[in-house]
Computed example of a mutant assay.
Amino acid sequence: MKHYEQAPGRRIGRIWRSLLAGLCACACVFSLAACGSDKEAGKIRIGIKFDQPGLGFKKAGTYVGFDVDVATYVAKKLGYQEDQIVWKEAPSKQREAMLQNGDVDMILASYSITDERKKAVSFAGPYLVAGQDLMVRKDDHSITGPNDLNGKRLCSVTGSTSAVTVKQRFASEVQLMEQPGYAECATALFSGIVDAVTTDDVLLAGLASASRGRLRLIGKPFTQEYYGVGIKKGDKELAKKINAALTDMITNGSWQRALEDNTKGSHFSPDPRYNPPTPKEGE
C-alpha cells in the first residue's frame, strides 16, 4: 500500500522538477537571446540621412556632413567616442517611429522642429536655422529669386512641401518635375531638363559643393526651418545635455568650422538673422 501512496508523490515531484528545469532553460534561452541581440550595449544610436550631401551622406562606408559632425560632437559631450556611435538611416517618414520604438537615441537628419512633430517626439536644439532656397546652373542669371520662376521648370522631391510653397507663394505657373531624390534633381538641372531645384538652402549648398562649381545657390532663403535633435518624447534631461553640447560647439567655433567644411565652394552662408541659433528647445 505504501508503494502506491508514494508513487503519486514521486511522480508529482518529478513533474515539478521537470517544469522547474524547463522554466530555467527557457529563462536561460531568453536571457541569452537578449544578450545576443544587445550588440549595441554601451553605444549611442544616432539617426541621420544617408543621401544628403553636406548634411548626412554615406560615402564608402563612412558618414560625412554637417549633421554627422554635430552629432559626433554631441555624442562626445555625452561621453561616447566615435567608435561607440552606431549610425542608422532615418528616412523622413520613419523618424518619429524610430524614436518612439527606441530604435535610436537621437536623430539629426534635417529634422525641422514643428508643433505637429512635437505631439509624438521631443526636440533639443535648434542647431541650425535653414531656409528654403533655389539652386541653378552656374551660368544661368535669369533666376535671381523665387519671383522669377513663372514659366520655369522646377524640380523637387516627390511629396516635398518645397515645391508647393513656391507655387502657393510665388509662381503659380511654375512647371514642376518631381524626382525621388535631390541627386536626381541635380542631374536634371545639369542636363538642362529643369531650370532650378528647390529645398532647404543647406542641402542645396551640399549639392552645389558636390557639383564642383557647376551649380550655384541663389542665396535668398524665403522660409525658416529650425533643425532640431529629435529625442524620445518628454526626455528633458537629455534635451538639457544636448543643448549644453550644442552651445559649447557654437561658442568655441567648431559649429562654424563644420558648416564651412561641409559647404565648401557653394558660397553658402546661413541667414545671420537666425544663426547661430540659441539651443533651448525641450528643456
Rank of each mutant, 00 (worst) to 15 (best):
Y226S: 10
F190R: 03
L189A: 01
H3V: 15
V74A: 05
I107H: 06
A71L: 11
Q100R: 11
G79S: 11
A196Q: 06
Q94M: 12
L238R: 12
Q175L: 10
W16P: 00
E260K: 14
L217W: 07
A171F: 02
L189M: 10
Y227F: 14
A120C: 00
Y274P: 01
A205L: 02
D139M: 00
W16S: 06
G213V: 01
K58A: 13
P91V: 02
S18T: 10
C28Q: 03
N101G: 01
M177F: 12
S37E: 09
V229Q: 03
C24L: 15
A7T: 11
L238A: 14
E5F: 12
G102P: 05
E173M: 09
T144D: 03
K241S: 06
V74I: 14
L149R: 10
G265N: 13
T158L: 12
K167M: 11
K167A: 13
R10Y: 13
A71G: 14
Y227D: 10
A41F: 05
G125V: 04
R10T: 06
R216I: 08
A208M: 05
V29H: 00
T187A: 04
G228T: 05
S160M: 05
H3M: 08
K2N: 06
I113Y: 00
K76Y: 09
G206S: 09
A239V: 07
A188Y: 01
P53L: 00
V121F: 07
